[in-house]
Structures are given as C-alpha cells and as structure tokens.
C-alpha cells in the first residue's frame, strides 16, 4: 500500500498496483522515495478522491480486455467525466501533475467535447478569459472564416 496526502492534510491508502498508473509516483517508488507518506501539495482531497476512484477502477486495464469488461470500463469513464466544469479542471491539473496518461486523455477529450460548439462568448466565460482583442482584430478573424461562426449548433450557454 502507498500513502498519499492531499494539500488539506488528508491521507489516503492506495494499492501499489493502482497508484503506479501515475508515472510520477511510479518513478518515486522505483527510486525508493515512497517509503512513507507522499505529500501532494497541488491536489485537494476532493480531487484526490476522484483520481483514486479512477485508478482503482482502471487497475486491471489489461485484464478487462480479456474478460470482456471493456464495456463496463467505458461506462465507468463516461460516468466519471460527468462532473462539473471546475471539478473537471481540477482533475486535469491533478492528472497532469501525477502524469496519468489515460486520465489526461479522458478528461481533456471531455473538456474539448464540452467546448466544441460553444460560442466565443461562452468560452471566455467558462475559462474566465478576458477578451483583449480589438473589435477590428476580432472582425478580421471572423472575415477569415465566417463559416466557422455560423450554424445552428453554436451554443451560447455556459456550463
């Protein structure tokens, strides 16, 4: 078992087989740096619980293919990313920090899917970005490819 500590001082025990899906922790274990608790100063407990849930479910990825549990895993993944926008960002940051490739893939794809049809205004609001383009510059971009700004699928809602 490996002990992980979140930045709000909560400790979690995770099976080694699960936690080594994180390249970062795997390297620490191989280097003999994981003898006691591993502090994770960038991850809060709420996010860490989500990450551990993912790691435990994906512990036997290879086996799943043999036993026909792939569909089960796919369903889990779909459910897993069904979370709030801000929560998703926290998980992406954690997955990036811990270097868990599959989790990064899953969450970044989910983020992309959510942004895909959004209006420019909605994207700015979702990502808290201030528009620093002048009106002329904006018009120039629109003129370059007006078709990209049209269509019934453009979604102006923020969620």
């Amino acid at each position: 078992m490996v002990k992980l500590k979140s930045n709000d001082d909560k400790e979690f025990e995770v099976e080694e087989a699960a936690v080594i899906q994180s390249e970062m922790i795997k390297n620490m274990i191989e280097d003999g740096c994981a003898t006691s608790v591993i502090p994770l100063p960038n991850i809060d407990s709420k996010t860490l619980i989500k990450v551990i849930e993912y790691l435990n479910k994906h512990i036997n990825m290879g086996k799943a293919a043999e036993t026909g549990e792939e569909d089960d895993l796919k369903e889990f993944d779909e459910q897993f990313v069904n979370m709030g926008w801000e929560e998703l960002f926290d998980v992406i940051m954690a997955a990036n920090y811990l270097n868990i490739h599959e989790l990064m893939e899953l969450c970044c794809q989910s983020a992309a899917d959510r942004l895909k049809n959004k209006s420019v205004r909605a994207v700015r609001e979702m990502l808290k970005i201030t528009n620093d383009l002048t009106e002329e510059e904006e018009q120039e971009i629109i003129n370059d490819a007006p078709w990209a700004f049209e269509g019934p699928e453009i979604d102006d809602t923020v969620n």
Binding site: L115, N117, V123, R124, L127, N131, L133, I141, A148, F149
Partner: peptide
Amino acid sequence: SRLTVKSLLKFKCVSK
C-alpha cells in the same frame, strides 16, 4: 488540440 478545425477557427476570437 482535440477540437475540430471549425471550432479552432472560431476560438481564435477568444483572446490574443
């Protein structure tokens, strides 16, 4: 990088 070209052309308008 996971978005379509259409979305990306649109999102050039988000910020500098």
